[in-house]
């Protein structure tokens, strides 16, 4: 079920390539190798290297990751709302390790399997506890 244009040959991550974080990574769709949409890149996790530089260790996903990128009251409102609705630890962000990102192009291609319980816990909880009990929900398309 490919739902995204196929990657181009030059999208593979190779040493020496450079990226604009805002232009090439943030808000990009993350897809699996077969093109199935997985998530959207809401933020990046950075860890220090021994030489003082910072390395991208993971792509962060979800409203708690997105909130700090907004400014002012909307950021605090989204953050509070996301924390209120979260089903796991409030300081936990859904993440895809950068090692799983194999291509950076129009979309980020990840090797993560599409059914990953840690990526969309709130969606999973709503599907199982709110949508599924509704009469007829088993016949819904998609």
């Amino acid at each position: 079920m490919p739902q995204h244009p196929p990657p181009r040959p030059g999208d593979e991550r190779t040493p020496g390539r450079a990226y604009s974080a805002r232009f090439h990574l943030l808000d990009r769709q993350i897809v699996t190798e077969d093109g199935t949409p997985l998530a959207k890149a809401d933020d990046l996790e950075l860890i220090p290297d021994s030489d003082g530089s910072l390395v991208v260790s993971a792509v962060l996903i979800g409203p708690t990751a997105l909130a700090p990128r907004l400014r002012g009251r909307p950021a605090r409102l989204l953050n509070a709302l996301a924390r209120r609705l979260t089903t796991g630890p409030t300081d936990h962000h859904a993440r895809i390790a950068m090692g799983h990102i194999i291509r950076i192009g129009a979309a980020l291609t990840a090797t993560t399997p599409p059914v990953d319980a840690t990526l969309h816990p709130l969606e999973d909880w709503i599907r199982d506890n709110v949508i599924a009990p509704l009469p007829g929900s088993g016949h819904a398309p998609g």
């Binding site: 990226y19 530089s53 910072l54």
Partner: peptide
């Protein structure tokens, strides 16, 4: 701006700031 570093040149390979 992020650059892709090879493993031998840095302690951690990957995207460096």
């Amino acid at each position: 701006r992020l650059t892709e570093a090879a493993a031998p040149s840095r302690r951690l390979p990957g995207l460096h700031v």
